[in-house]
Amino acid sequence: MIETTAASMSEPPMIQIVDLVKRFGPFTAVDGVGFSVFRGEVLGFLGPNGAGKSTTMKMAAGFLTPTAGRVAIAGHDVEAAPLEAKRALGYLPEGAPAYGDMTTRSFLEFLGRVRQLDKATARRRFDQVVTEIALEGVLDQPIDTLSKGFKRRVGLAGAILHDPPCLILDEPTDGLDPNQKHEVRNLIRRMAPSKAIVVSTHILEEVEAVCSRAVIIDRGRVVADGTPQDLMAHSPFHNAVRLSLLNAVPDLASRLADVAGVARVFVPEGGRPGRDFLVLPRHAGATILEGVAMRLRQTGIAIETMTVDSGRLDDVFRNLTTSDAARETRAPQNRTAETRP
């Protein structure tokens, strides 16, 4: 994050999306989405199915024309200077489409030629990408005959072949097995320092694993924008204290009731009654660890383990994308948060 802020001070955003709106007839799919991505950032783009993630990305890549708003890729307006913008962008469309009758090799060579890489660069990048994404085994197989995971990786290889400064990847790990997911996340992490990357996903652990920032959209609007840690701070479990006691203390709840900031003490799902407890803070994020620890020491309760919960992204996600109240109160808040320089 420190690098990110440093970059944002000195450089203009590599991907800039401003008040993007897309209407399909009477239906508004994207309703004023805006965010900027700087070099060195990996932005996780989240939202429930149908929230407008793919539509936003299609507009950013220049495949759909926005009803209103604008997108700039590496400083080039996608509508006014489409070729320059597209040259600076690597885009993996939803479902990773590729020409099924071509082999992996001929597909990547085709992309290299269309993108007018010179022979030496094309050769070098081809070898690099094939090694990086482990496509050696399927180079001469028609793409139609490949497994879902390999198809996705061929698509990804095509998106990064020209080593673009900006990447927009629509669900790059969908359909991959856990090992392949891990590989792709490592790849994204390796590329991150030199690029601005947007990754859409609905796997929340992925956001924690690779993203330096997360934007959550719901019904076409941004409902949250911040680091994964920021978002997790909104979780009711943020800074909750998880306790395991050596000996059963059934009345722990009453003993901790008057500790400053403690809202509730209960046995978590699957916990042993009387021994495992979850202590929730009254205000999301309030620090209660110290008070709880002191009280336990004072009353002579022996502790087996004691950890502070950092919160769960999926709770935050559910809160933000399902309750109408959250949508009403959060959206304007984030409007102001978005308007960073």
Binding site: G62, F63, L83, P93, G100, R115
Partner: peptide, 14 residues
């Protein structure tokens, strides 16, 4: 149908 139109039209080709 195959979705490759999205690939083709996002290449830097007029």
């Amino acid at each position: 149908k195959a979705g490759t139109i999205e690939l083709l039209l996002t290449l830097p080709v007029p």
